[in-house]
């Protein structure tokens, strides 16, 4: 944030008759886009670990060698097992997160629009928000069975609460003068909601989705660790119980990539839906 762009100008260039340049002091505090810095930090870190593990500076019990993790990943890909683990995980994520996010946006809008829904539901949401949803997995297994539905339910439930909170906050923040304008032109209630409130709340809803989808990935792994034959979570659990650090890191890397993918999907949606923002 506060990169200092210039050195303070000293009094040395105080040439003729006490005349000197006014020192520039307005630098920094202006975030700029630096495209490749993220990638450079990432590769520098990997490179450091690679050299340190190969030279024995870091023992192979502490961290696996990055190139071997990569080789394990290629092996997983070539054996076809990657897709066997990835496809069920991604489909669980899509189904669970869609249910949770849809319900969350719906309930959030209701809370934002109706005082009755707000009075009734906000305390309830506040009460269920801090419950670690993983603790409820046994309950979901009893309700929905050991198969897919209990995993969907866990992910959906975990996505639901943060989405609700983000959505009604976003609806509250819609510019009231725009709503007043809609009323002054005698727009119908439904038009005001769909053409003014919803687009106005969209920035807040999308940034809320960033958080809730990351939570969805965490819960996906938790659900798969507790009972799944295939899936990234099952793969990580198996590697972990064998202390196979290479495979463990492959699993973790896949999750990171999944997270980056989801986040860039939301970035794309923001660019498309919110191109009207300054």
């Amino acid at each position: 944030m506060s990169d200092i762009a210039s050195k303070p100008i000293t009094g040395e260039n105080a040439s003729p008759a006490g005349q000197k340049t006014v020192a520039f002091r307005g630098g920094g505090f202006a975030p700029q886009s630096r495209r490749w810095v993220g990638a450079i930090v990432f590769f520098a870190l990997i490179g450091f670990v690679e050299i340190a593990t190969r030279s024995g500076f870091i023992t192979s019990l502490t961290l696996p060698i990055p190139s071997e993790v990569f080789a394990t990943f290629i092996g997983l890909w070539e054996s076809g097992l990657l897709w066997k683990h990835l496809v069920p995980s991604v489909s669980r994520l899509i189904v669970g997160a869609s249910i949770g996010a849809t319900l969350g946006i719906g309930i959030g809008i209701l809370i934002g629009l109706f005082s009755l829904a707000r009075a009734g539901l906000v305390p309830l949401i506040a009460a269920i928000f801090p419950i670690p949803k993983i603790a409820l997995l046994p309950l979901f297994v009893i309700w929905f069975g050991i198969d897919e539905p209990s995993k969907y339910a866990l992910i959906a439930f975990g996505t639901f609460t943060p989405t609700v909170v983000a959505t009604y906050g976003a609806v509250d923040n819609v510019d009231r003068t725009l709503i007043r304008m809609g009323q002054s032109f005698s727009l119908s209630w439904i038009s005001i909601v769909t053409k003014i409130v919803l687009p106005g709340a969209m920035p807040g809803i999308l940034s809320g989705l960033r958080v809730s989808l990351a939570i969805a990935i965490i819960l996906l792994v938790a659900a798969e660790m507790l009972g799944a034959e295939y899936g990234i979570g099952a793969y990580i659990l198996e590697a972990g119980s064998l202390y196979d650090l290479e495979r463990l890191f492959v699993g973790v890397t896949i999750l990171s990539i999944l997270g980056v993918g989801v986040s860039s999907l939301i970035g794309l949606a923001e660019n498309r839906l919110l191109n009207w923002r300054i």
Binding site: T177, L178, R180, M181, S184, F185, S186, L187, S188, S191, K195, I196, P199, G200, L274, W276, R277
Partner: peptide
């Protein structure tokens, strides 16, 4: 719309074009 306001802060929808902002108030009628 017999009684029509013009607001100090313009009250234009930032996500609609000039044309879209005007058609907003026509669509409903």
């Amino acid at each position: 719309n017999p009684l029509t306001y013009i607001f100090q802060d313009f009250a234009l929808l930032p996500w609609r074009t000039v044309e879209g902002n005007i058609s907003l108030v026509l669509e409903d009628h």
